[in-house]
Design a protein around this nucleic acid. Structure first.
Lengths: 185, 185
DNA sequence: CTGAAACCTCACGTTCGCGTAAGGGTCAGA
DNA sequence: TCTGACCCTTACGCGAACGTGAGGTTTCAG
C-alpha cells in the first residue's frame, strides 16, 4: 500500500493569511519550503497529480533539494488551486497549459490581460449556460420525484410495465422524461 | 470520411405531439420505424454512440429488418434523451445500466418506484450542490473579469510579472485566485 | 435493375486524468 | 548511526465514451 490516497489534513493552517497569495510576494520565499507531500495535503491532491501537473508544465518547484526533492514556495498552493478551479470550469489540463503558456508568452502586460479577458468572458457565458442546464435538470428531477410520490399508495402487486399509464393518475398528466425513459425501449 | 459526425436535423418534427412519449403507448408502433441513422439525427447522437448504448444494454431496437437493420419505435427517442439527461446529471453509462436493470428487475411497481425515488433524491441533492459550486465559480469569473478591466489603461511596456503588485491598484485589493494563479509558480 | 446511401459486424485506436507498482535514494529526529 | 517516513524516476494500466477504419450487405428511389 502506498500513500497516494488523498491524505487527510494534519495541522493545516495556511502558510499566511488567506486571500493574499500573490506571485512575486517577497515574504513567501522566507517560509520553510514545502515538499510535494505537504503541497498535496494543502491542496487535497495526490502526489501523482502534482507530478503530472509538472510534466504538463502547469507547475514548477521553486528549486530542488540537494538530493533531488522538489521544494515549493507558498504560492504554489495558489497555483494548484488555480488549476483546480479552471478544471472545475471545464478546462482540460491541456487547455490550462495553453492558458499559462499564452500568459507568459505575451509581449506586454495589457496584451496578456486582453487575452485572458476574452477567454474568461467566453467561459463565463459557457458557465452560465451550464448552470441553466443544471438548474433545468434539477427542476426535472424534482418533478420526477413528485410524480413518483403518488406511487406510494399503489397496489404492491401492480406491474411495472403499467406505471406510465396508471389509472390512478389523470390521463393528461404526462410522465417526465426521467420517468418515461425508464419504460421506453 | 465517414458519416459519424453528429448530423444536423433534416425535416425534424417529432413523431407525435411532444410530452407524450409514454412506453407501451399503442399508437407509437403504428408509425414507420426509425432506422439507426434517423434515431441519431433525432437525438443528436452518432450512430456509434447508439450502438454502444445497445452493447451496454441501455437501448434495444424494437426489431430487426429482414436484412439485419435495426428498427426502432418512436419511444426510443425518449429513451435516448433519458440516457442523455442522466449523463448530464453525472451518471456514467454503467450507472445507467444498473438503474434500468434495477428498474426492470424490481419485484413490484411500488418497489421499483421507491428505489428510483431514493436514487433521484440523492442525485437532486448532489445536483444542487453542483449548481452552487458552479455559481460560486461564476462569481469568481466575474470578479476576475472586473479586476482585469482596470488593466486597459496600463502602459503597454509594463511587464507581466508585475501585474499582481500593480501600483495602479490599491494595495488592499487582492487579486482573485483566477488571476493570481497565473503568475504563481 | 442499378447505384449510391445507409447499414452491418468486428476490432483496434484515442484522449483524459490520474492509479499503481517497481526499484531504488533522501531526510530528519532519536 | 540508524531507521522510518518521504521522495525520486520510469513505465505500464485503466475506465469512460466513443472515433475510425475495414470489408461486406441491404435499401430504395429512379
Amino acid at each position: 500500500m502506498s500513500v497516494q490516497l488523498p491524505i487527510h489534513q494534519p495541522g493545516l493552517a495556511l502558510v499566511r493569511g488567506p486571500d493574499h497569495a500573490c506571485a512575486g510576494d517577497p515574504a513567501a520565499s522566507h517560509d520553510k519550503p514545502l515538499r510535494v507531500g505537504d503541497l498535496a495535503r494543502l491542496t487535497n491532491k495526490t502526489v501523482r497529480a502534482l507530478h503530472l501537473y509538472e510534466e504538463l508544465q502547469l507547475l514548477e518547484p521553486l528549486e530542488r533539494s540537494k538530493g533531488g526533492f522538489r521544494l515549493y514556495a507558498g504560492d504554489s498552493v495558489t497555483r494548484v488551486r488555480f488549476i483546480s478551479k479552471l478544471q472545475d470550469l471545464g478546462f482540460s489540463l491541456g487547455d490550462i497549459r495553453e492558458i499559462v503558456r499564452s500568459w507568459s508568452a505575451a509581449g506586454s502586460a495589457p496584451d496578456a490581460m486582453a487575452r485572458m479577458r476574452d477567454l474568461y468572458r467566453a467561459k463565463l457565458e459557457h458557465t452560465r449556460a451550464q448552470v441553466e442546464r443544471l438548474r433545468a435538470l434539477e427542476l426535472e428531477l424534482a418533478a420526477s420525484l413528485s410524480y413518483l410520490e403518488t406511487c406510494d399508495t399503489c397496489d404492491p402487486n401492480r406491474l411495472i410495465a403499467s406505471c406510465c399509464s396508471c389509472d390512478k393518475r389523470a390521463t393528461d398528466e404526462a410522465a417526465p422524461e426521467l420517468v418515461a425513459g425508464l419504460s421506453a425501449h
